[in-house]
Write a protein that binds this DNA or RNA. Structure first.
Lengths: 138, 138
DNA sequence: CAGCATCCTACTTGATACTG
DNA sequence: CAGTATCAAGTAGGATGCTG
């Protein structure tokens, strides 16, 4: 704990277990975070709207992730006290700045999807799983 | 399973549960992946070297993540059959292209760390956890 | 509608022991 | 040194039922 935190924050510090950037990466790395930011890309959306847009997200995870994003100041939550409650979510200023790096990442993913899949097949083919000695293709 | 995969790969598809970009995001979002790529930033490293650089990673997780990265074609593994075996890891061409988006992300994290922490404190202060009515600061 | 609380499973991770 | 194998434990996440 004698490490120079101030300096360590600026460079390769995430290797230190206590580095706070890890928390950020955890949040960003979260599957739903990325998708939610994407779903709020161009404007606001209500809860049920997000739920519909993001296929496969459970109500629990959506709520949970949104709360986390709100806590981190990346998403703003507005409650309209109407008869059936209406809640709208928007990206905050900070949240909008996150779109860029995430977009870059997604773009990378799309670009390299093919290569990765191909590599995986090669790998799986080379390192035969647990099949018996007969060389049958799966 | 009647969805048009080909098309869905090209745009906002990650919202579809079956979209393969999710797998990529899972990999990228992985805590250790980011750190390993960072550790291999400028050159190669041996197993034990990585283990030392990346504080907090268990031998199992390191192996596992490296295997995953190798399978995805992002990291290359070279075994030197010397007396005490020596294994070196390097980023592949594809792996190197990943550095940029990851660097952007890390930069974002560093830049916004303060804001996020501040926001978290505000949030936690506003939404008092489960303390009793007395307003004692924890 | 939007969300909270509870239960319960399944995957992830760590610790430990052993090997080429 | 660089792993593999195994087991125990923690946690994320889904399903369900209830509420302002």
């Amino acid at each position: 704990m004698v490490t120079t935190q101030a300096e360590s924050v600026l460079r390769g510090s995430p290797y230190r277990a206590d580095c706070p950037t890890r928390h950020i990466l955890d949040r960003v790395g979260d599957r739903w975070t990325v998708l939610i930011v994407g779903a709020l890309w161009d404007g606001n959306a209500r809860f049920s709207e997000l739920r519909r847009r993001i296929e496969g997200v459970s109500q629990k995870m959506l709520t949970q992730t949104l709360r986390g994003l709100e806590r981190d100041g990346l998403v703003h939550r507005t409650v309209h006290p109407e008869v059936p409650v209406r809640v709208e979510y928007t990206l905050t200023e900070a949240g909008r700045t996150l779109r860029e790096p995430l977009r870059a990442l997604q773009e990378w993913a799309i670009t390299h999807l093919g290569d990765v899949s191909a590599s995986q097949e090669d790998y799986d083919h080379a390192n035969r799983p647990l099949s018996d000695s007969t060389d049958r293709d799966k």
